[in-house]
Nucleic acid binder design. Structure first.
Lengths: 207, 207
DNA sequence: CAGGCCTGTGTGACTTTATCACTGAACCGT
DNA sequence: ACGGTTCAGTGATAAAGTCACACAGGCCTG
């Protein structure tokens, strides 16, 4: 079922009209929703799948800022939509995703006509702001080994994950070598097994 | 003249009504607009002065996230206003400030009735999101000496600034010792002179 | 105005993280 | 099987964070 909760709150005639006017766009794993500098085409409503948003600094390093999943709204786009500025980050599809792209005109109309839509947008914005604030705190003050551990912990249930040390470094905003060394240490402690492009959790990974 | 550009865009009868219903609140240097955990009372529109927003991590360390000045909107409050969650950060007045506090009901009404108001809110949100993204990048990848230098550079014109190393550490999200050492090095290079609670720029501070 | 107190600053020793440079292993296509 | 490419491991060194403590400046109080 292709739907997005923020559209379900619309009053009936409007909802039907909007839904009939939008067709879902499919994006496969690895596709880029937008790149840094791109102008904003519309507000993406993520129906399913998973999209990560990351930025690359002047230094040339990248860091993942947050992810969007089912029922998420790409709030970052709104600012660009309003000011006409280009994106400062890029969005990469991780798990194949379907997206409604709401054009500027329709967005304005929905903001005008539905209090629930406005509420949904504001809530989404608030969450994103909070996420970023927490990320700042994490990057500024938390130790790398803890952060890496937590990242892995959230994925233990998958048993094996497919990711390179370089990608993991981008997740945490650090250098590949740092990730390699820390992972090696985890391996020495028996928490996981390393292979090229893969990390396998052992039963003894602490939970 | 006490006004805020986002209110000036309102259609005339509404603008007059809103303005007559709001009286500016005065906050002196050092006053706390809100603390972490506080519920949100309304949307603060900053008329003048300067307010810094900072958060304290689990680690007990703090970092300044951004500042608000004349004509700014405390977008952070909107999320809290919508979800009813408490603030995750605190706002401290630096230069005496005057603020319109827009209560929830009025905010909803303005969002409903003015497209320009909506635009202003969305733009403000977009800017804040961009600021935070840049901060993440800065904290994750930039060298401390450069960041400290830039922070000082932005204040060279004041000649002397009154700030402790501890406060400066919070500005940058680092440890006091790191700031002390870097400042000492700047002093050795002749860029500035240090005194208890003060930093004096010399003519040779590079610009 | 001497002494005590609090806050702010300086610094050594050590750990963690980042950077640089390079090696070798694993995989891919032909 | 070979050669190229991507990935991972590691030593050396620099930058930044942590811990512990000494001491200096300003302020209050007797």
């Amino acid at each position: 079922m292709l739907q997005h909760s923020i559209l379900e709150t619309l009053p009936e005639p409007l909802r039907r009209e909007v839904l009939s006017g939008l067709q879902p766009l499919h994006f496969e794993h690895g596709r880029i929703l937008f790149r840094a500098g791109d102008p904003c085409q519309g507000l993406p409503l993520v129906l399913n799948g998973s999209v990560k948003v990351q930025m690359t600094g002047l230094s040339g390093h990248s860091i993942v800022l947050y992810r969007m999943g089912a029922d998420d709204i790409c709030t970052l786009s709104i600012g660009c939509l309003m000011t006409g500025d280009g994106f400062r980050a890029e969005a990469v599809v991780e798990d194949d995703a379907e997206v409604f792209m709401v054009p500027r005109g329709l967005f304005d109309r929905l903001m005008d006509q539905s209090a629930d839509f406005r509420l949904g947008i504001m809530e989404s914005y608030g969450r994103r702001l909070n996420d970023l604030m927490l990320l700042v705190e994490e990057v500024a003050f938390r130790r790398m080994d803890e952060r890496l551990f937590q990242w892995l912990e959230a994925r233990v249930r998958q048993g094996i994950i497919t990711i390179t040390h370089q990608e993991l470094a981008v997740e945490l905003g650090t250098a590949r070598e740092v990730v390699s060394r820390l992972l090696k240490e985890f391996e020495r402690k028996g928490m996981l097994r390393l292979a090229r492009g893969k990390i396998e959790f052992t039963g003894s990974f602490p939970r």
